[in-house]
Simulated assay, not measured.
Amino acid sequence: MATGTSDFLPRLIRHKPARKYTLEEYLRKEGSSVHKHEYINGEIIKMPNARYNHNLIAMNVAVEMTNVIEEAEKNYQVLGSDQKIYLPNLDESVYADTLAICEKPLFWDDDDLLLINPILVVEVLSKSTQRYDRTSKFDKYKTLESFKEYVMIRQNECYAEVWFRERPGLWHETIVTNIEGKLPLQSLGIEVSMKRIYKNVNFVV
Rank of each mutant, 00 (worst) to 15 (best):
Y26W: 03
L183M: 06
K199H: 15
M65I: 11
M59Y: 01
A50G: 12
E149S: 10
R28V: 12
H172D: 09
E145T: 11
V78N: 03
S6I: 15
N200D: 15
K199P: 00
L90M: 11
E173S: 09
I85W: 01
W163F: 15
L9R: 12
Y52N: 01
N49M: 15
D7V: 09
L113N: 09
I57F: 02
T129A: 08
F147D: 03
D82N: 14
Q155H: 05
L183P: 09
T98W: 00
R14Q: 14
L170T: 11
N117E: 07
P105T: 01
F107A: 02
L183Q: 04
N89Q: 13
L106F: 00
H54D: 09
I116H: 04
Y21A: 09
L90T: 03
G189P: 11
N55D: 09
L183W: 12
L87S: 01
L115H: 03
I69K: 04
Y86E: 06
Y21V: 11
K84V: 01
D111A: 10
L87Q: 03
V151K: 03
L183K: 06
R154V: 05
K36L: 12
I40Y: 06
V63N: 05
I40W: 06
A50Y: 09
D111N: 10
Y159K: 11
K137T: 08
S146V: 11
L23N: 04
N60A: 10
S126C: 07
I13A: 11
T5A: 10
N75K: 14
C158Q: 06
E161L: 14
R134G: 10
A96K: 01
M65R: 07
L115F: 03
K140E: 06
P168D: 07
E24Q: 14
L170E: 10
M1K: 12
G181P: 02
M59L: 15
G31A: 07
Y95Q: 01
F8S: 13
V204G: 00
L114C: 07
Y150P: 06
V176A: 02
H35R: 14
T98F: 01
A2I: 15
Q186L: 14
V34G: 04
K140M: 12
